[in-house]
């Protein structure tokens, strides 16, 4: 790791002032950034430590729940309000990483984590995300973990987060601070698809700071589930994961939310599948139909064709758990 300057500006405004210069990176938990720096994937000149900023709170708002960007993953996963209002988020968080890492990782940092694609991590390999124009090592390489939705000729990496899949399903909103004040964007629009610029993971500008997320109140708490299929029982990234949330009333599904992890460059919302469930009974048959709808447009590569079967099976399974019809 090369030497860098380390600063801890006093206020949020000072942070915003400090991050304008190129080569500057914000550090919060550091669980991904320090790893990337050790491997030489990123080599900032200056680290801006923001851990002391007052962005840790988890507080109810008029129509939702606000979670500060610096709230720790472990704290959020066990927070009483989160457990009561959005148990899906807790499940998703607990499915990720390890207890130690969750004690370090923050909500904002989790959103900013980079793909775990081996070709991205390995500085001797081609990777358009790490070094635009060098090609995609995974396209013709070992792409077992890679995308089946929304990939481009430039990049077939997936976003590794579990938390983000939960937040995408729950219609969360991201609150971003910049020089001109705050802006809010839907969580599903925070991350982006690779297209011709896989080096850019999301729509956060260089001089902006995530200050929190807000989850609108909903009726999903009773019927939600996070299913993560992975190569070992814990401490592994998802082959496929599914966040499923249902609002069931009078034996019928009033609303449905579905998002997947491990399948795309961003948390992948399954809007058409959600729509197909509205007004239907929560049955395995209906779930299977929804799962098939969700797979439209999927495209596999040499080593990840199994995801074309695993993904719909997992969607259906997650819905069964959410509906309590296992």
């Amino acid at each position: 790791m090369k030497q860098f300057q380390y600063i801890r500006p006093a206020t949020q405004q000072n942070v915003l002032d400090a991050i304008t210069k190129s080569g500057t990176k914000i550090i919060a938990g550091g669980t991904n950034l320090v790893d990337l720096m050790k491997r030489g994937v990123t080599a900032p000149d200056k680290l801006v430590d923001i851990n002391h900023l007052p962005l840790k709170g988890i507080t109810p708002t008029k129509s939702g729940l606000h979670i500060g960007a610096l709230a720790l993953n472990s704290v959020v996963s066990e927070n009483a309000l989160v457990l009561q209002k959005h148990p899906l988020l807790s499940l998703a968080l607990k499915a990720g990483a390890s207890p130690q890492l969750r004690n370090m990782a923050t909500v904002g940092g989790n959103m900013m984590q980079r793909t775990r694609c081996t070709y991205f991590y390995d500085t001797t390999m081609p990777c358009n995300k790490r070094e635009p124009g060098t090609g995609c090592g995974a396209m013709e390489g070992y792409n077992r973990m890679h995308a089946i939705f929304g990939a481009s000729q430039q990049c077939i990496a997936v976003h590794p987060s579990d938390m983000c899949v939960g937040l995408a399903a729950l219609d969360a909103v991201v609150i971003i601070a910049g020089k001109k004040g705050e802006r809010r964007i839907p969580f599903v629009d925070f991350h982006r698809l690779p297209e011709d610029h896989p080096e850019t993971d999301n729509h956060l500008a260089k001089d902006e700071l995530i200050v929190g997320v807000e989850i609108p109140d909903n009726n999903f708490a009773k019927n939600s589930y996070y299913l993560k299929v992975r190569d070992r029982q814990s401490y592994a990234f998802a082959l496929v994961s599914v966040a499923a949330a249902l609002d069931i009333s009078g034996g019928l599904i009033k609303q449905a939310r579905l998002a997947m992890g491990g399948v795309a460059h961003k948390p992948w919302r399954l809007y058409d599948a959600e729509k197909s469930l509205v007004g239907k009974a929560p049955t395995e048959e209906n779930f299977k139909v929804a799962a098939q709808i969700a797979m439209q447009g999927a495209k596999a590569y040499e080593y990840n064709a199994f995801k074309l079967k695993l993904a719909p099976a997992s969607i259906s399974e997650a819905l069964k758990h959410a509906a309590g019809v296992v």
């Binding site: 320090v34 430590d49 207890p99 890492l101 004690n103």
Partner: peptide, 13 residues
């Protein structure tokens, strides 16, 4: 009092 991975913790932090 909280368990963390010291390999990913910068000392200065």
């Amino acid at each position: 009092g909280h368990r963390v991975n010291s390999c990913l913790t910068l000392g200065i932090m």
